[in-house]
Protein backbone atom coordinates (compact mmCIF):
# COMPACT_ATOMS: atom_id res chain seq x y z
CA UNK A 1 0.00 0.00 0.00
CA UNK A 2 2.78 2.42 0.91
CA UNK A 3 4.49 1.71 -2.45
CA UNK A 4 1.34 2.62 -4.35
CA UNK A 5 1.16 6.00 -2.68
CA UNK A 6 4.88 6.58 -3.23
CA UNK A 7 4.69 5.82 -6.93
CA UNK A 8 1.65 8.07 -7.28
CA UNK A 9 3.54 10.80 -5.46
CA UNK A 10 6.62 10.49 -7.64
CA UNK A 11 4.65 10.17 -10.86
CA UNK A 12 2.24 13.01 -10.13
CA UNK A 13 4.22 15.46 -7.98
CA UNK A 14 1.96 17.81 -6.10
CA UNK A 15 -1.23 16.01 -7.08
CA UNK A 16 -1.81 14.50 -3.65
CA UNK A 17 -2.88 17.26 -1.30
CA UNK A 18 -3.26 15.10 1.76
CA UNK A 19 -3.20 11.50 2.94
CA UNK A 20 -5.80 10.69 5.57
CA UNK A 21 -5.89 7.47 7.50
CA UNK A 22 -8.85 6.46 9.62
CA UNK A 23 -9.97 3.04 10.87
CA UNK A 24 -7.39 1.32 8.71
CA UNK A 25 -8.66 2.96 5.52
CA UNK A 26 -6.54 5.28 3.45
CA UNK A 27 -7.85 8.30 1.60
CA UNK A 28 -5.83 10.27 -0.90
CA UNK A 29 -7.02 13.82 -1.38
CA UNK A 30 -6.17 14.61 -4.99
CA UNK A 31 -6.27 17.86 -6.97
CA UNK A 32 -9.46 17.98 -9.08
CA UNK A 33 -7.60 18.51 -12.35
CA UNK A 34 -5.48 15.40 -11.91
CA UNK A 35 -7.93 12.94 -10.43
CA UNK A 36 -8.55 11.23 -13.76
CA UNK A 37 -4.84 10.82 -14.41
CA UNK A 38 -4.29 9.37 -10.93
CA UNK A 39 -7.23 6.97 -11.26
CA UNK A 40 -6.07 5.95 -14.73
CA UNK A 41 -2.61 5.23 -13.36
CA UNK A 42 -4.06 3.21 -10.48
CA UNK A 43 -6.10 1.15 -12.89
CA UNK A 44 -3.49 0.57 -15.57
CA UNK A 45 -0.29 0.21 -13.56
CA UNK A 46 -1.26 -0.66 -10.00
CA UNK A 47 -3.95 -3.26 -10.64
CA UNK A 48 -6.89 -1.41 -9.09
CA UNK A 49 -9.31 -2.99 -11.53
CA UNK A 50 -12.58 -2.63 -9.61
CA UNK A 51 -14.36 0.67 -9.03
CA UNK A 52 -16.57 -0.05 -6.05
CA UNK A 53 -18.36 3.26 -5.65
CA UNK A 54 -18.50 6.95 -6.49
CA UNK A 55 -20.01 9.20 -3.91
CA UNK A 56 -20.03 12.83 -2.97
CA UNK A 57 -20.39 15.11 0.03
CA UNK A 58 -21.35 18.75 0.25
CA UNK A 59 -19.56 21.03 2.71
CA UNK A 60 -21.37 24.38 2.59
CA UNK A 61 -19.14 26.14 5.17
CA UNK A 62 -15.97 25.27 3.31
CA UNK A 63 -17.71 25.97 0.00
CA UNK A 64 -16.80 22.69 -1.60
CA UNK A 65 -18.19 19.43 -2.89
CA UNK A 66 -16.12 16.31 -2.44
CA UNK A 67 -16.31 13.55 -5.01
CA UNK A 68 -15.14 10.24 -3.63
CA UNK A 69 -13.97 7.22 -5.61
CA UNK A 70 -13.44 3.85 -3.98
CA UNK A 71 -11.09 1.66 -6.01
CA UNK A 72 -10.06 -1.86 -5.26
CA UNK A 73 -7.75 -4.51 -6.57
CA UNK A 74 -9.53 -7.84 -6.71
CA UNK A 75 -6.18 -9.62 -6.80
CA UNK A 76 -4.31 -8.08 -3.88
CA UNK A 77 -7.52 -7.04 -2.03
CA UNK A 78 -6.15 -3.55 -1.52
CA UNK A 79 -8.67 -0.78 -1.28
CA UNK A 80 -8.04 2.91 -1.69
CA UNK A 81 -10.23 5.96 -1.55
CA UNK A 82 -9.61 8.97 -3.75
CA UNK A 83 -11.28 12.17 -2.68
CA UNK A 84 -11.24 15.36 -4.69
CA UNK A 85 -12.49 18.73 -3.46
CA UNK A 86 -14.40 20.76 -6.04
CA UNK A 87 -15.35 24.43 -5.65
CA UNK A 88 -19.08 24.88 -5.07
CA UNK A 89 -19.42 27.61 -7.71
CA UNK A 90 -18.16 25.37 -10.46
CA UNK A 91 -18.11 21.68 -9.52
CA UNK A 92 -16.59 20.09 -12.60
CA UNK A 93 -14.42 17.00 -12.85
CA UNK A 94 -13.40 14.78 -15.71
CA UNK A 95 -15.32 11.56 -16.21
CA UNK A 96 -13.86 8.14 -15.55
CA UNK A 97 -16.68 6.31 -17.33
CA UNK A 98 -14.30 5.24 -20.10
CA UNK A 99 -11.96 3.68 -17.54
CA UNK A 100 -14.68 1.73 -15.74
CA UNK A 101 -18.07 1.01 -17.27
CA UNK A 102 -19.67 1.11 -13.85
CA UNK A 103 -18.83 4.82 -13.51
CA UNK A 104 -21.51 5.67 -16.06
CA UNK A 105 -24.54 5.40 -13.78
CA UNK A 106 -22.59 6.27 -10.66
CA UNK A 107 -21.56 9.62 -12.17
CA UNK A 108 -25.09 10.22 -13.41
CA UNK A 109 -26.33 9.69 -9.88
CA UNK A 110 -23.83 12.18 -8.45
CA UNK A 111 -24.75 14.65 -11.20
CA UNK A 112 -28.45 14.19 -10.55
CA UNK A 113 -28.45 14.44 -6.78
CA UNK A 114 -25.41 16.63 -6.13
CA UNK A 115 -25.04 18.67 -9.29
CA UNK A 116 -21.45 17.79 -10.17
CA UNK A 117 -20.62 18.07 -13.88
CA UNK A 118 -18.54 15.27 -15.36
CA UNK A 119 -16.88 16.49 -18.55
CA UNK A 120 -16.63 13.90 -21.27
CA UNK A 121 -19.43 11.74 -19.90
CA UNK A 122 -21.31 10.24 -22.86
CA UNK A 123 -24.82 10.61 -21.48
CA UNK A 124 -25.01 12.94 -18.50
CA UNK A 125 -28.73 13.01 -17.71
CA UNK A 126 -30.69 12.81 -14.51
CA UNK A 127 -31.24 9.20 -13.49
CA UNK A 128 -33.26 9.14 -10.27
CA UNK A 129 -35.33 12.28 -10.67
CA UNK A 130 -37.54 13.46 -13.55
CA UNK A 131 -35.72 15.27 -16.31
CA UNK A 132 -37.28 18.65 -15.57
CA UNK A 133 -36.61 18.54 -11.84
CA UNK A 134 -35.02 21.69 -10.48
CA UNK A 135 -32.16 21.63 -8.01
CA UNK A 136 -29.97 18.92 -6.56
CA UNK A 137 -31.52 17.43 -3.42
CA UNK A 138 -28.40 16.12 -1.71
CA UNK A 139 -26.95 19.61 -1.39
CA UNK A 140 -27.31 20.85 2.15
CA UNK A 141 -29.27 23.98 1.25
CA UNK A 142 -31.98 21.89 -0.42
CA UNK A 143 -34.87 21.70 2.03
CA UNK A 144 -35.89 18.42 3.57
CA UNK A 145 -39.55 19.25 3.11
CA UNK A 146 -41.16 21.72 0.73
CA UNK A 147 -44.18 23.91 1.33
CA UNK A 148 -46.32 21.95 -1.05
CA UNK A 149 -46.35 18.87 -3.22
CA UNK A 150 -44.20 18.93 -6.31
CA UNK A 151 -46.77 19.21 -9.05
CA UNK A 152 -45.11 21.02 -11.88
CA UNK A 153 -44.57 17.89 -13.91
CA UNK A 154 -45.93 18.34 -17.38
CA UNK A 155 -45.18 15.73 -20.03
CA UNK A 156 -42.66 17.25 -22.46
CA UNK A 157 -44.91 16.93 -25.51
CA UNK A 158 -47.72 18.98 -23.97
CA UNK A 159 -45.49 21.54 -22.32
CA UNK A 160 -45.65 24.19 -25.01
CA UNK A 161 -49.41 23.94 -25.35
CA UNK A 162 -49.88 24.69 -21.68
CA UNK A 163 -47.73 27.78 -21.83
Amino acid sequence: MADVIQTVQSKFPGAILEIVEYQGERTLVVQPGRVRAVLGHLKQSEGFNFLADISSAHWPEEGRIDVVYIVRSLKSREQLRIRTPLPIEDPVVETVSDLWGTADWLEREVYDLMGVQFTGHPDLRRIMLPEDFEGHPLRKEYPMEGDDEWRNYVPPETRENRE
Partner: peptide, 14 residues
Protein backbone atom coordinates in the same frame (compact mmCIF):
# COMPACT_ATOMS: atom_id res chain seq x y z
CA UNK B 1 -15.26 9.07 6.66
CA UNK B 2 -15.50 5.32 6.32
CA UNK B 3 -16.64 2.87 3.69
CA UNK B 4 -17.95 -0.42 4.92
CA UNK B 5 -19.36 -3.15 2.71
CA UNK B 6 -21.06 -6.44 3.40
CA UNK B 7 -21.84 -9.32 1.11
CA UNK B 8 -25.60 -8.88 0.92
CA UNK B 9 -27.68 -11.49 -0.95
CA UNK B 10 -27.71 -9.23 -4.03
CA UNK B 11 -24.03 -8.33 -3.98
CA UNK B 12 -21.81 -5.76 -2.36
CA UNK B 13 -23.88 -3.51 -0.14
CA UNK B 14 -21.64 -0.60 0.80
Amino acid sequence: EIYFAIEAPKGELG
